[in-house]
């Protein structure tokens, strides 16, 4: 392995976390989170490095990272909108929110704007069915949304 891409901070965090888990493989999910915090997304090289650190095949890292939608396998914009389109949110107008966002930002779901500011993604259940429709903006929740509130929110970001 040549030069390491992941920072010293990442490795220090892993050393601290390791005793919490019964096996080193269990460190995979937190490691992926920490790496994503560092780079905003998980590049193949980063996943390779995580694999060799934990001692598993890089394919296995890829398997786990692609299973969970919270891990970004492609670079995302500064503001990452994850709109829940599962049953409860859908019934409360999530589709409208998605198409509104798409129109306003001029991109399709899963895409990033040219200025690398916004990414929209459809999300399976966010666990906020009681306050549907819900959306995650980076790591924050916005619930009981409608188009007006969404507009307001987006304007403040711009």
């Amino acid at each position: 392995m040549g030069t390491k891409i992941l920072s010293k901070k990442f490795y220090n965090e892993m050393i601290q976390l390791e005793p919490r888990y019964p096996t080193k493989v269990a460190l995979l999910l937190p490691a992926l989170h920490a790496a994503q915090d560092e780079f905003g997304w998980l590049s193949p090289e980063v996943m390779e490095e995580i694999g060799s650190y934990i001692g598993i095949h890089p394919a296995q890292v890829r398997e786990v990272a692609s299973f969970y939608t919270m891990y970004n396998l492609r670079p995302v914009g500064k503001y990452h909108l994850k709109i829940c389109t599962n049953v409860a949110c859908c019934l409360r107008g999530a589709d409208e929110l998605v198409s509104h966002c798409e129109k306003k930002l001029g991109i399709q779901c899963g895409e990033t704007t040219k200025d690398k500011k916004f990414t929209i993604m459809e999300e399976e259940c966010l666990g906020a069915c009681g306050t549907a429709p819900a959306m995650m903006l980076n790591n924050d929740y916005y619930e009981n949304l409608d188009v007006v509130q969404l507009d307001e929110l987006l304007e403040n970001l711009e």
Binding site: I56, H57, A59, Q60, R62, E63, S66, F67
Partner: peptide, 10 residues
């Protein structure tokens, strides 16, 4: 003994 073939996505 090698986990090279995996299930991507879900």
């Amino acid at each position: 003994g090698i986990r090279e073939m995996v299930a991507l996505q879900r």
